[in-house]
Design a protein around this nucleic acid. Structure first.
Lengths: 156, 156
DNA sequence: CTTGACCCTGGAATCGATTCCGGGGTTTAG
DNA sequence: CTAAACCCCGGAATCGATTCCAGGGTCAAG
């Protein structure tokens, strides 16, 4: 796969792929005769892993350490194992916090709706219907996770 | 409450409180005779809300719009309501992705442990025990969520 | 009185993640 | 052939969130 293919499939830019390679997050791929990168199928898996890790709060530095340890086959050092364990706890904790916030936000949306219904007397059904956002469902499976990161110019 | 108290309770720095005020995320508090900020109890709630929203992917700009609409009492504009609804969907989606990643990470940790056990033949129990991270449990309820943001110098 | 903790200000700097820049080569479809 | 899409490079710039800076005032304890 060429870089554009991997980038599109993963929902990132080719710039980002190059950046990750420089940062040691992606192994150097083979090259075609014209100098283009020729990624194997596992590269997409790797990028998706990176994106997921980012979305749960790993920094790129942490991810780099992690994937290096994972790919090595030999025992990881203590710090990397401890890092993984710590992140697991943090993820769990974070899911719980997110659930709590979700509830708060739901309540607020309900209140908003009540206000909008009161303001648009006689048109509650249509008003609420018109407020249903149209989700942009194009892009990769991770597009839902990109909402607080800058949109890649290449996929927008 | 003075700014230090709110900051400590919320797990942020006083710089961050001032920053939020400048950004319109926090209302201007009253001042004491010496010029110190005198926050009401609701300020802490507000800061915690901001932190939670950040942790689920809102930008400060989005949060600012949101809290303004929420605090107004009048009907929110369509965009803000739509923003809230969109974020709800994204949170749900994100929780699911996080669960999936959690599983991946758990499997990796197990693999790491197997490697470590094989490497430290005859000492598996003690080795794994020594790898149990000591969690830093000081700080606010949101400290678990701050792992990918810079530590406040004031609370570390 | 002294010192350290606390507080203030507005602008600048830092950091992490990503994108842009400037320049150039390759491929593909019409 | 042409033009657009695709690809390359390394360094610089952007953006969002936070922190630092430089300078100064206030408070409390020893």
């Amino acid at each position: 796969m060429r870089s554009g293919e991997v980038a599109r499939a993963a929902g990132v830019s080719t710039d980002t792929l190059r950046f990750y390679e420089r940062r040691g997050l992606l192994p150097r791929p083979k090259r075609l005769a014209n100098g283009y990168r020729a990624y194997g199928a596992q590269a997409l898996d790797r990028v998706l892993l990176i994106q997921r890790a980012l979305s749960v709060g790993f920094t790129l530095e942490e991810i780099a350490r992690f994937v290096k340890a994972r790919g090595r086959g030999s025992p990881p050092c203590r710090e990397v194992r401890a890092l993984a364990a710590r992140k697991l706890e943090e993820i769990q904790s974070r899911i719980q916090e997110m659930r709590a916030f979700q509830k708060t936000l739901e309540e607020t949306v309900e209140e908003f709706d009540a206000r909008l219904a009161a303001a648009g007397e006689g048109e509650p059904a249509r008003l609420l219907e018109s407020l249903r956002p149209t989700r942009n469902t194009s892009g990769s499976a991770l597009s839902a996770l990109a909402f607080n990161r800058r949109r890649s110019r290449e996929i927008s």
